[in-house]
Design a protein around this nucleic acid. Structure first.
Lengths: 335, 335
DNA sequence: ATCGTTATCGGGAACGTTACCAAAAAATAT
DNA sequence: ATATTTTTTGGTAACGTTCCCGATAACGAT
């Protein structure tokens, strides 16, 4: 029941392991008959090369690591699908780890992936991550790295993100032109790059239409289950907004639920638009307007850059940040 | 920048690799001073053991493999979270592969995980899988295996599933007692164990209330994007049901959307209840009644059995199938 | 002083594979 | 027939680690 190895084949056919290896690998420097013999026997015995031995020898694994905050999040699972599609076609495995928004877990994940000799790393930062020295360290080691979605200014590396500014700008502008004046912005922890960019888009839209920027209308919200609810209740009670623009998948849902729970009519009393990749947005009550990120494409682009780097196809390419346009879907919740 | 190894430490401290290994591992048969010296140096140089070398030597990896159809599916991502939570606490890594509902991909995934010497395997079958010889093969090899959610009768192995019969029975019963007579059941491919069990629950409820079982009201539906829509349209047009009970996460959504697209009032004209783990069910229009599977707990239970098997903690335990109760949430869509 | 014990350490093999170098055999050239 | 090249193969080391076995030294006991 034990797996068959090159040694077993060599012994069975009275050859050396070198010869068997040659037969299995490239065809050069080998008698065609010997090669055939080996290949047939290997086939018959269902020989499968041991990737672990290979990894030890070659110091690589034909696998790439992916670290995301949470796969139970549409954006990330879609991004992973993009990553996987490309990686699979190019002969790489994808090893997925979740940080669960914890800095410590993220560092651990990165370390483990490096220990396991992944050929490259794709990461979207946790909500707690401010210090990126763990990434700088692997960069110093020469491990190819691409950061996507949630990036950091502290590291010079290829990045792939949605055009968060544009999306937020368009969402806010839409709310403004449809007559809203007090637009609350419920957003993620201020550490995140996405938070900054979306806030900037929000501000820019206000500015364009000469609306005042009121700090009290902007709320940062962490990842605790009940947090969004509290924040929404508070902002509704104290600020009386006539519109809400939320900045993430999870926040869109929790906030939407909270507003409804409070018995406030959407969009009559408060218009609502969410930055989210929820597939069910059009089925909600009322149908939810959304800014959608091209998650699959972000994943796809990120992994393409990573694999090109791994395979030395971008030797002299400068490090850059790729912005992929977002898409706005206007529905009843914001009319 | 290269990673430091035991050899490097040995050379630096003028010791043999054996001694260094001993110092790093168990403390027996080693001078306390030598040990301290080694540990300090290792710490200073940031030594990390090479798990690949370990895997090669010990023929195991301290990792378990998980094969699921699709992570962009609430049920599976929640199950994975359950798996991960337990595995992490017990010192195992989790390697996630997706079959994307393809039999070929599933076989490949299993093979790759075995090649990579996972200590055990958790799998939920693809929608195409009828032949489980790939699982029988690894079972014969002695690799610990637990099948969850979508199982197969063809293999005797520990299984963890939701109580699909109960959930379907309760859903159907609820529709019946609230006055519905022609209840359509939109379900997954007939190969799946979950499909059978849910259909059985549906039938049993009809029987209990002496309603006829009409084959035309039951529709099997594959995984193509437009398929559910077509099926729903057809069944609505030709069968005029007064209720719809759907059998999966994806089908619930697609069917719900299709019914609404057709302009049919829920629940007035057609009552609707879905077997789904959607987090947003209560926010839909109208709020969607659901049968919820304890996904996290299924994952948790499955991995506990697997790890116990790996660690020989269930030597004489008989193979069994664990059924975990489902939960019915009644909302407006089915009143 | 010799011997057996104990504590501590080093050497070598092994896990599966490939790369390099050398050796043998075969083919070709002289 | 001999020399030279080409083709084909085998042996060995190496990747990083642990385990088994043997070696050495110190030590107390006789």
């Amino acid at each position: 029941m034990e797996a068959i190895t090159i040694k077993d084949i060599a012994k069975a056919l009275n050859l050396s392991t070198s010869t068997v290896s040659r037969a299995l690998r490239g065809s050069y420097e080998i008698n065609q008959e010997t090669k055939k013999l080996v290949l047939e026997y290997a086939e018959k015995m269902n020989y499968r090369p041991n990737p672990i031995a290979l990894s030890l020898k070659e110091n690589r694994s034909r696998a790439i690591g992916v670290v995301v905050p949470e796969i139970a999040n549409n954006f990330f699972s879609q991004a992973i699908n993009g990553i996987e599609a490309v990686a699979y076609n190019r002969g790489y495995h994808v090893v997925i780890f979740q940080s669960h928004e914890l800095y410590g877990r993220e560092v651990e994940n990165v370390q483990h992936l490096i220990d396991r000799k992944v050929d490259g790393l794709l990461i979207s930062l946790s909500g707690q991550t401010t210090d990126v020295s763990h990434l700088l360290a692997i960069q110093a080691k020469g491990v190819p790295l691409v950061v996507f979605d949630r990036v950091s200014a502290q590291i010079e590396v290829n990045k792939v993100v949605a055009d968060n500014f544009q999306g937020a700008f368009q969402a806010t502008e839409h709310l403004i032109v449809s007559g809203r004046k007090r637009i609350a912005h419920i957003t993620s922890p201020s550490l995140l790059s996405t938070t900054h960019e979306r806030l900037a888009g929000y501000k820019a839209a206000l500015e364009k239409y000469h609306l005042p920027y009121d700090q009290n209308l902007v709320r940062y919200c962490g990842f605790e289950p009940e947090e969004a609810r509290q924040v929404i209740f508070e902002v509704l009670d104290t600020q009386k907004p006539d519109a809400i623009f939320t900045a993430s998948d999870r926040l869109a849902l929790d906030s939407f639920a909270a507003v409804k729970a409070k018995g406030i009519a959407i969009p009559k009393q408060v218009a609502f638009i969410g930055f989210t990749n929820l597939g069910v947005a059009h089925l909600l009550d009322p149908p939810l307007s959304t800014v959608v990120q091209p998650a699959f494409e972000i994943g796809k682009t990120a992994v393409e850059i990573l694999l090109d780097t791994i395979e030395n196809k971008r030797m002299n390419a400068a490090v850059k940040t790729i912005k992929i346009p977002t898409e706005v879907n206007l529905r009843e919740s914001s009319q």
